Amino acid sequence: MSDPTRTSQSTRHATDPAGAAARTPAAAVAPMSRHPLAAAFRLLITAAALTGLVLAATGTTGPAQLLTRFTVQANIAAALVFACSAHRAWTGHHPVSPRIAGALVPFLSLPALLHYVLPAADSTAFTLPTTASGAAQAVSHQLLYTLMPLAVLADWLLLTTPRGFRLSYAWQWPAYPLLYLAFALAFPAATGAPSPTVTTALTLALALCALPLITIGTDQVRPAPRLHNNRISPTGIGPLK
């Protein structure tokens, strides 16, 4: 009679193709699935972010000073992440980590919230500098304050599976914005914006902590999107068909 233990050991150390296939994880041999529509949508998001940044730079007398603004930094990060996500969706590789891609939701929602809901905080370093009105400035504001947050929300809600965000992201995502807020309070001249008042700073800190919690909570209860052919987040393993 054969020994089951010995059989499993020999299978584990087998060097023939059958033994190698038995030891290879299923995820390593799964066929890559390309998502061209998701890739095209993310390329459009990248183009919108870059266009808004260029127009914002042309509408100010100090383009280099814009790099110190949180809105500009968040949109540069969005352009890089979505360009990488578009490439991965087109080639069928694994999507960008939810820890990185998901952080864009609160990062881009905060400037829009300050611009449209909290006018008192619209002059802080978290938003674009207030300059003379012009066509380029108006278009850049629409792209960076309106289109980009809505596009990121649409990408998250329509092209990713729910329950991909972890609770640990609730303290990881606000880390940089809170450090930026502390920097803006300590060195307002370096950001090119007036130092926020105590009330404004507390409001910003509260928003920075609340937005990740709202995003993670919404991700836990939202329904799964129906765009199965273009959804890029990994799904669970189902039965064989």
Rank of each mutant, 00 (worst) to 15 (best):
R6D: 14
T7W: 10
Q9T: 13
S10N: 14
T11P: 00
R12Q: 12
P17W: 11
G19R: 02
A21H: 07
R23W: 00
P25Q: 04
A26C: 05
A26R: 11
R34A: 09
A39E: 02
T51H: 04
A56K: 02
A57V: 02
T58C: 10
P63N: 02
A64Q: 09
A64T: 06
L66H: 03
L66G: 00
L67R: 04
F70T: 00
V72G: 00
Q73N: 07
N75Q: 12
A78P: 05
C84A: 14
H94Y: 09
I100Q: 01
F107K: 01
F107A: 15
F107D: 06
P111E: 00
A112M: 15
A112K: 01
A112L: 09
V117G: 05
P119H: 01
P119K: 04
A120C: 05
S123F: 04
A125W: 03
A125S: 10
T127A: 14
T131V: 15
S133W: 05
S133M: 09
A138H: 10
S140A: 15
S140E: 10
Q142W: 14
L144R: 03
Y145M: 07
P149M: 11
P149D: 09
V152W: 10
A154D: 03
W156V: 10
L158G: 11
T160N: 14
T160S: 15
G164C: 06
S168P: 00
Y180K: 04
A182E: 07
A186R: 11
A189M: 12
A189S: 13
A190I: 06
G192N: 05
A193V: 06
A193N: 05
P194S: 05
T199M: 10
L204K: 07
A207P: 00
L211F: 14
I214S: 08
I214N: 01
T215D: 07
G217P: 09
P223F: 07
P225V: 06
L227R: 12
S233D: 14
S233N: 04
G238V: 11
